[in-house]
Amino acid sequence: MVKKLNVKRYELYRRAIMIAVALLVGLSAVTGEFALAISSVVIGLLILYSIKGRVEQVLVDERAFKISEKASRRTIQVVGTVTAIVGLIMIVLGRGGYPALTDFGMALTYLAIFLLAVYLMFYRYYSWKFGE
């Protein structure tokens, strides 16, 4: 019989696992043992996944999804706008005597275009899914 967990105990375990993984990743960065970093992250994720299934109460519900939707929308707006503006400023500065900035500006601008393209693709998909 698998012992069930309540949310408080799950949160406690989750934090302990995250701290342990962070410590192991830090240790591996110092010692150069990258296999330790990868294996600790994978094992940590597996343990988290296994204990998540034993939680009695609901962890994610419609309110959490709604918060996530709003946060994603704001993130797209902020990151897309800032990336595009900073990218264009870098390109302009690059042409005004700082050529090293042009590549960085181009990369940021392409990133903004890619972000917009992915957003539009998912927007069209969900428009179709929800009956447009």
Binding site: Q57, V58, L59, V60, D61, E62, R63
Partner: peptide, 22 residues
């Protein structure tokens, strides 16, 4: 919350009028 299959935070938010349920 357990009976409805949602989190306690959702019940609190609905009671406070901060969240309109689906």
């Amino acid at each position: 919350a357990t009976r409805l299959g949602v989190t306690r935070q959702t019940i609190i938010a609905i009671e406070k009028g901060k969240y309109c349920p689906s």
